[in-house]
């Protein structure tokens, strides 16, 4: 993590829980100074030494009497923090609830953007499957058709009939050699591709849902 990432994470956290802008600037300028005084090219090292920016931000928030939603996961550092926690027990949770609803509404409002993308993805996959099936079907049908017409033609014009039977056999052979193994592999592949896509989309939603705990 470099200086910018570190300070951005801190700022986001402090802003999220509504620390006054003056206090945010004060804290950030202090930590920026730490980075600058530690020296050039030591940003990663300094960030590692400082620790988790979110936890530092939570500490600052705690000192200002602001209760963060997941502060209960960490043991309180001092007794006074416990007093502050009981002072406004639902201050943080209502905030995170608001945040969840905000995200939910945002999700609904942005559906003109993500819905077409998902539909397009599914349509593309479907088209791919249909194409493969059509090509294979065309191979079988044309092969059999050539053989049948060849059998009829062999009576009238033997050379042409034999030629047609030959072409038909070749095409059918091609299907047996290439087509059927490919088909056998492609259909499960398409299945897993669709399953993967569904899982991915579900994951996206799960992640959105999970953020309500933050």
């Amino acid at each position: 993590m470099n200086k910018l990432e570190f300070l951005t994470k801190m700022r986001n956290r402090l802003e999220k829980f509504g620390l006054p802008q003056d206090d945010i600037n004060d804290a950030l300028s202090y930590y920026e100074e730490v980075f600058l005084d530690a020296g050039f090219g030591k940003e990663e090292e300094t960030a590692a030494e400082l620790g988790d920016p979110v936890e530092i931000a939570d500490g600052i928030l705690r000192d200002s009497g602001i209760h963060t939603a997941d502060a209960s996961q960490f043991p309180p550092r001092f007794d006074e923090t416990q007093v502050q926690n009981t002072a406004n027990p639902n201050g943080g949770s209502s905030k995170s609830n608001e945040n969840f609803w905000l995200k939910f509404i945002l999700l609904i409002l942005t559906f003109p953007i993500w819905l077409p993308i998902i539909i397009t993805l599914f349509a593309l996959l479907f088209a791919l499957m249909v194409t493969v099936v059509a090509i294979v079907a065309a191979l079988i049908i044309s092969g059999i058709a050539f053989i049948i017409t060849g059998v009829y033609t062999v009576i009238d014009v033997p050379p042409v009939g034999i030629l047609m039977i030959g072409i038909g056999l070749m095409i059918t052979g091609l299907f047996v050699i290439i087509g059927s193994p490919t088909l056998r592999k492609i259909i499960p592949a398409c299945g897993s591709l669709i399953r993967g896509l569904v899982d991915w989309i579900r994951g996206l939603f799960a992640k959105r849902g999970g953020q309500k705990n933050v």
Partner: peptide, 12 residues
């Protein structure tokens, strides 16, 4: 001690 421990001290 780390810089993050010092900040609250200075603020206080």
């Amino acid at each position: 001690i780390s810089e993050s421990t010092l900040y609250p001290v200075l603020r206080r």
